[in-house]
Structure formats: structure tokens, C-alpha cells
Design a protein around this nucleic acid. Sequence first.
DNA 1: ATACAATCTGATGTATACAAAGTACAAATG
DNA 2: CATTTGTACTTTGTATACATCAGATTGTAT
Lengths: 234, 234
Amino acid sequence: MKEDNLQVNMDEFLPLRDVVFKTLRRGILTGELKPGERLMEIHLANRLGVSRTPIREAIRKLELEGLVTMIPRKGAEVANITEKNLKDVLEVRQALESLAIELACERITPENKEALKEKLDQVETAARTGDSSAIASADVAFHDAIVEASGNVRLTQLVSNLGEQMYRYRFEYIKDESKHSQIMSEHRIMYESILEGDKGKAARIVKTHINNQEEAIMRKIKKEHDAAGQEPDD
Amino acid sequence: MKEDNLQVNMDEFLPLRDVVFKTLRRGILTGELKPGERLMEIHLANRLGVSRTPIREAIRKLELEGLVTMIPRKGAEVANITEKNLKDVLEVRQALESLAIELACERITPENKEALKEKLDQVETAARTGDSSAIASADVAFHDAIVEASGNVRLTQLVSNLGEQMYRYRFEYIKDESKHSQIMSEHRIMYESILEGDKGKAARIVKTHINNQEEAIMRKIKKEHDAAGQEPDD
DNA sequence: ATACAATCTGATGTATACAAAGTACAAATG
DNA sequence: CATTTGTACTTTGTATACATCAGATTGTAT
């Protein structure tokens, strides 16, 4: 009798398949749909108030994104997130964000600069208030602004997708308040490196920034994994 | 009255949607389905001898891969490949293949080494015979072996996907026979760098290798674009 | 002849119906 | 009592039917 946060937002002027896609993805990324959970079409269709067709089309996309795995003649289930998997994602993400900031150093436009400064300010004010949620979203926005400044559309898509894979863990490295000042300074250095056009410095700081995140996330994962080992699944 | 190479391979034990997916993707990547061409469901369904449902599900995947673009209430069409687009892809691919070879330097296993050596030999024998097709596929296999040796599954997926985006142009930098010896030596250096574990050297040679490809492809693209400007579409 | 409107066509978007296959459970048999 | 087989049920895979919308075409009025 759990409450059903999985609701389609009918206000959007999108095909149902896209609404369902977004809904399911959000459910998976927030952890409402748990890894290993089966995604049965009729069930979801009833729950979301649509027919099986849009559900299936949404699942096809989630499948390609790697968020669900298909078992032939059995159906879809939420992909399991392993430590290895996350490490792989972070490794790739580090390379791509490094590329992004290097490209940004070369190509940043005045508009990008303005946007980036704005996001930086938001990170800093959020960090001062200590509001984890605000820091997390400002952090994401800041990184998005950097990737945007790279001018590479495909890169933007990929980084955004990889970022979403870790949505669930975005708070982990922010929770530790003692790190807030460090986070702030890292962001400031990134910003300055870009303005200076110092690619080497920029790439280095991005790498350490993501490494810090990785450590925090890995700690969390290990903890989750241990917990999962104890309690049997319902 | 053009011949219809777009045929589903019914021998495969896969859901029709996957067969259709592969078929359409192959059609797009080989250029049989031309950029801008509309993909109408009923037509494709008749042509491939299946119903609309598998067609639609295949299109959803192609959509997420970026191979087709959806126009609301109008349908799918083969994505246009612009010069900018290809540049973006190659930029990302360069970063990811660099990462792959660096990781391979650290993590390569004896089995990986053996496979890599085998592919290298295949490249060299193919280069000596001058068979462009053989060189192209051996080249792909060699790079795949490197990425495989990185031990990063996500990276493997991404590189493979990006590689497919440029399937059409894989011959371009091989056609020029005067470059064959250069290609061979580049591959050998990559191989040796990995064995030596020299990440810097490995990354550098991969970058120049891809840069060379990029030049050849860009020349080709420009030529295609000019040609398209002259002849009107039928 | 041109502009505008109504209609008609053909495509997508969505729902449902039907087929096939895998699984679980129960009954029968050794 | 265990094992095997058969049957029913659940769920996916595929096809088709229905709804809706956008664009084209045709007809009419100015």
C-alpha cells in the first residue's frame, strides 16, 4: 500500500511515450523503482493510466540508455547498479568533463561566461547557506554551463546522460559539510582556469573534483551493498 | 524500381523489433537510407513484412541513438549528418579512445595482449595486400580490442556507438594507398605503447591517428555537401 | 485569378485484440 | 515420497483497429 509517486504529468504537450519515458526514468533515477524490480507492462499501464503501447516504446528507450535490461520473453527490469558499473561511468565522465572544460577554455563566448559566472555565484551562495539540495542543483547547473561552453552538442548529450545515471548519488559528496569550502574553491578554480584559458589547470581541477565525488559515492555504494546483503528482498 | 537491400534476416532468434532495429540502422549507416529521408511506418512495415509495432519500437531506439529525428505528428526521418555533427563526434571519440588506450596500458591482460597482437597482424597483412575493405575491418577490430582491454564496459559501448555513427566514412582515410604504410606504423606504435605501458605515448598516437581520419572524412564530407548543392533531390 | 475555407487524405498516436511462450502448480505415476 | 507431465495462467510479442491531427486539394466567392 505504498503511495504512488509515479504519476504521469498530463500537462506536458508531449507524446505519451515521452511522458512515460520521463516518468519511468525519474522513477529509476530517484530509486523509487529499485534495481532488479520487474517492469510489467500491464501493471505500469494501469498505474499510469495509459495503454501498453506507450509503455513499451518508453521501455525501448530506457533499454538503450542502459537503465533497464531486457530478459527475452520475461520482460524488462530495472538495471542493477554495481560498483563496477558506477566506476566505469565515472571514469568516462571524468574524461568527458575534462574534454569539455578544455574545449570551453578555447571556445567560451561572452554569453557562456556570463552564464557560468551566474552559476558560480549560485554555488557559492548555496554553499554559504549550507542547503545541500541547493548546492547539488547549482553544482549540476555549473557543470552543465561548462559543457555548454564546449560548443559540442554530442558531448553535451553524453555528459548529461552519464550525469543522470548518478542522479541518485548526487548528494553524497555534498552531505559532508566540512567539504563545502573545498567544493567552493574547486568551482572557483574551474571558473578562473576557463577565463585564463589554462587548459591543463582546468582539466586537472575537474579530475580531482570528480575523484572527490567518486570517493563519496563509492563509500555510499559499499554501505548500500552491505545493507542489501543483510535484509532479504521482499 | 530500386532493388530492396533492406531485408530482415528472419534467421536470427531475436524479437522482430531488434531485427528491424539492426536492419534500419544498417540501412542508415551504409547510406541506403539517406539523410532527410522519411521513415514512414506503414511503408517500412510492408517493405520488411512485419507490422507497425516492431517498426515503431525500433525507431524509438534509433531516435535515442540520434540516427533518426522525430518530427511531432509527422514522423521519423533519417538524421542529417552535418559537418559540425561529425566534428563533434570525432572530438568525443578522440577523448574516449585516448582514455581507452591509457586504461589499456594499465590493465591489459595476457588474453587481451594476444587478441591485440592478432588484430595487429591482420591489419598488417591487409595493408600489405592493399585490400581497403580488409584494412577497414581489421582496423575496427584492432581498436575494439584496445577498448576491450580498457576493461570499462560503458566505455566500450560508447566508443562502439560513436564508431558506428561514422560507418559510412570508414573507408575514406584508407582509400589513399600512399597512407597505408603510415597507418601500419601508427598501429604498431599503439601496440608497442600499450605493451610498454607508456600512457602518454599511447594517447598521443591515438590522437594523431584519429586526426588523420578526421581530415580524410572532412574532405569527403565537403565534397558530398558541394555535390548535394548542385543536384536537386529526386 | 487569387484568397480563403471546407473537406479529404494519409500519416502518426494510442488502444486493444490475438498469438506464443515460459512458469508454476497440481495431479498422477513410479 | 519424489519425479514427471499436463494444464492453466501470466506476460510478452505482434498485429490490427480506432482516434486525431497536419497538410494538401479542391471548390467557391470576391
